[in-house]
Design a protein around this nucleic acid. Structure first.
Length: 332
DNA sequence: GAACTATGCGGAA
DNA sequence: TCCGCCTAGTTCA
């Protein structure tokens, strides 16, 4: 799932490549015909993310709200300009000025020359497939403009030289400013939105008043925005906190440390496009850990494997119908 | 080609 | 608490 960092990266991409441009909007899949018809011919004014929600403002205070859910993703193609922070995190960004440059494919995956950039649910294989096609000289289609429709595209935003395809979102709708404000009002603090000090107070107060497991509260978007299943598991481990601890019983200094941890994790995630939760390791250990996608976390996706700190088997349990991974010893 | 999985969430029961 | 939905990939038969 795209957690908060991905959504911020997408908002930056749209901000960078679409603001000030008039778009041709369409719904090749057909499920967003009416909305696309409203957006068609309008100029993009602004794009912003709050937690896992993204909002794009067009002319006349017409807003597009997108939530990617579990499977949603954006594919960018064309003369994509990289956000400075994103570009600096990608090893191949020097070769930008051709048609298309990779965004999400990571420096670790060494996939820097793809014809499409995908941000959202993991699509590394797909990106790699495209790259290998290109390498084999079968990439002519990547030079077509507009790009051919691949898969089920809910919404395509197209300008003379850039294209963004949205597929599989949980939510994609046109909203009024009031509706946008109502959605945002229900969201907990996002470290990248507003005053982070205010955010910290809201987070601490929000958790402290609840007699609900901290493992559930971290996933509650009205308590704190942008944390998903991966960041939850990793943050609880980093805080050495038992996921079942009721919110009201978590020490205040622990909560403040967790907020500051989230501030750091999110900004690192936005910069790198990776959920870098093991940055405390020494460089060599870190390099090894990053070598494989499934080996990048303290506890997430490590059920039955020995804890990296104490060797105890990592536990997998269901919490609120989501998989929760934790170390029963380090997080006693 | 079916079954299964995934970084989510809302609504019905 | 369970179900449905959104999509694409991987795995297994």
């Amino acid at each position: 799932m795209p957690e908060g960092h991905s959504v911020h990266r997408i908002a930056r991409q749209i901000e960078r490549n679409f603001v000030g441009k008039t778009v041709t909007a369409s719904s090749p899949q057909g499920r967003f015909h009416e909305g696309a018809a409203i957006l068609d011919g309008l100029t993009v004014r602004e794009a912003k993310a709050v937690g896992k929600q993204m909002f794009v403002e067009f002319d006349d205070q017409t807003w597009l709200r997108v939530h990617l859910g579990l499977y949603g993703a954006w594919d960018f193609a064309g003369e994509i300009l990289m956000d400075a922070t994103i570009a600096s995190a990608n090893g191949r960004m020097g070769q930008t000025n051709q048609r298309g440059t990779d965004v999400e494919a990571s420096i670790f995956d060494d996939a820097g020359e793809n014809s499409l950039a995908s941000i959202g649910a993991p699509r590394n294989t797909r990106v790699n497939v495209r790259m290998s096609e290109q390498t084999k000289g079968l990439g002519d289609e990547s030079l077509q403009w507009p790009p051919p429709i691949v898969g089920t595209v809910r919404l395509r935003l197209l300008t003379d030289d850039v294209c963004a395809d949205l597929r599989g979102p949980t939510a994609c709708e046109v909203q009024t400013p009031e509706e946008v404000a109502a959605v945002i009002a229900k969201l907990g603090p996002d470290p990248l939105v507003g005053d982070t000090t205010v955010g910290e107070e809201r987070f601490v107060a929000g958790v402290k008043r609840r007699n609900v497991a901290i493992g559930q509260l971290l996933m509650d978007q009205s308590i704190v925005s942008g944390i998903g299943n991966v960041y939850r598991a990793e943050m609880l481990f980093r805080a050495a906190l038992n996921p079942h601890t009721p919110g009201k019983d978590v020490r205040e200094d622990t909560l403040r440390a967790m907020w500051r941890d989230w501030v750091q994790l999110l900004s690192t995630g936005v910069e790198t496009g990776q959920m870098m939760t093991m940055d405390d390791l020494d460089p060599e250990a870190y390099r090894r850990a990053m070598a494989h996608r499934d080996d990048r976390h303290w506890v997430y996706h490590r059920a039955g494997l020995p804890c990296r700190e104490c060797g105890t088997e990592i536990v997998l349990e269901e919490m609120q119908a989501r998989k929760l991974y934790w170390c029963p010893r380090c997080q006693a």
